[in-house]
Design a protein around this nucleic acid. Structure first.
Lengths: 123, 123
DNA sequence: CCTTGCCTTGACGCTCGCGTCAAGGATTAC
DNA sequence: GTAATCCTTGACGCGAGCGTCAAGGCAAGG
C-alpha cells in the first residue's frame, strides 16, 4: 500500500509517517516511480509507535520496540532493550508523580494560607 | 540597582529579566544613559515569579500574582485572580496526576505481560 | 589612551512532533 | 485531453523560556 493508505489505516497523516522515516523508525520499499510502498508489518510497526506514544513515550523511546519488531519478534517488547525501556519509563513516571504530588501539596498550602489571610482580614 | 545586580541577587540571568520585561511582567525605570534601574520591590516581584515557576506555573500564570503585588498588596496571592489561578492549577495538577497514574498502570501491565511471556517461553 | 566590564537592542538557536505551504511529477477518472 | 487527486522533496512555523552570539555604547581603573 502507499503512504496515504497507510496513514488512513493507521489513523495518522502522511507527514507523520515521513517524519518517522526521517527518524529512522520506518523504512519503505520504493516503487519504480519513487512512491513509498508499505506492507502489513509496517502497519503493525506504526501501531506500536502510536501505542507507546499514547503512554507518554517519546519517539526515541519507541526505537527499541520498533527494532525488536523488525528483528522478527512477534511483539515489540520481546527484547531486553524494550523491557529496559519499560523500567526506565516507570522510574521516570514515578519521578514525575513524586514531583507533581509535592507540587500539589505546595499549591494547596499556598491556597489555604491565602484564604486564611483573607478570612483573618475580614472583620 | 542595575540589571546585573538584580539578576545576581535573584539568582537568575539578565536575559531572563529582559524576557520577563518583554512579556510585560517586569517594568524598569531607565537611568539617563538608558540603563534599566530596579528597586527592592522589583526583586520581590522576580522572587514571586521564580517561586511560582518552581511549582510548575507558566510565566503567563504568574501574571495575576505580579499584578497583585504591583497594585500594592503585601503578597502576590492577596487578590481574587491569584486565588482563582491557584484553583485552576490545582485542578490542572490533579488532571496530570490522574493521567500519569493511568499511564503508570499501563506501563506496569505491559512490563508484567512481557516478562510473563519471557518466563513462559523459557523451558 | 587603553582595557575591562558593564549595559543596550536585535535576532537566531534549541527541543518535539509534526502542520502547512510550495513547486513539481505521476496516476486515475471522465 | 484534462482535471482531480495522488505522490515527491524541501523548507519554514509553532510554543516556552530563555541561551547565545553580534555589534556597539557607557563607565571606571591604571
Amino acid at each position: 500500500m502507499r503512504i496515504g493508505d497507510l496513514a488512513q489505516r493507521a489513523g495518522t497523516t502522511t507527514r507523520a509517517l515521513r517524519f518517522y522515516e526521517s527518524q529512522g523508525l520506518l523504512m519503505a520499499q520504493r516503487a519504480p516511480n519513487g512512491y513509498r510502498e508499505y506492507d502489513e508489518d509496517d502497519l503493525r510497526l506504526v501501531t506500536e509507535i502510536q501505542t507507546l506514544q499514547n503512554i507518554g513515550f517519546s519517539l526515541d523511546d519507541t526505537r527499541p520496540f520498533v527494532e525488536c519488531l523488525r528483528s522478527g519478534h512477534e511483539s515489540g517488547d520481546s527484547c531486553a532493550d524494550s523491557i529496559e525501556t519499560y523500567r526506565r519509563k516507570l522510574a521516570e513516571v514515578d519521578g514525575y508523580l513524586d514531583r507533581l504530588t509535592a507540587i500539589r501539596a505546595g499549591i494547596q498550602t499556598k491556597l489555604d494560607d491565602a484564604q486564611a489571610r483573607q478570612q483573618g482580614a475580614r472583620p
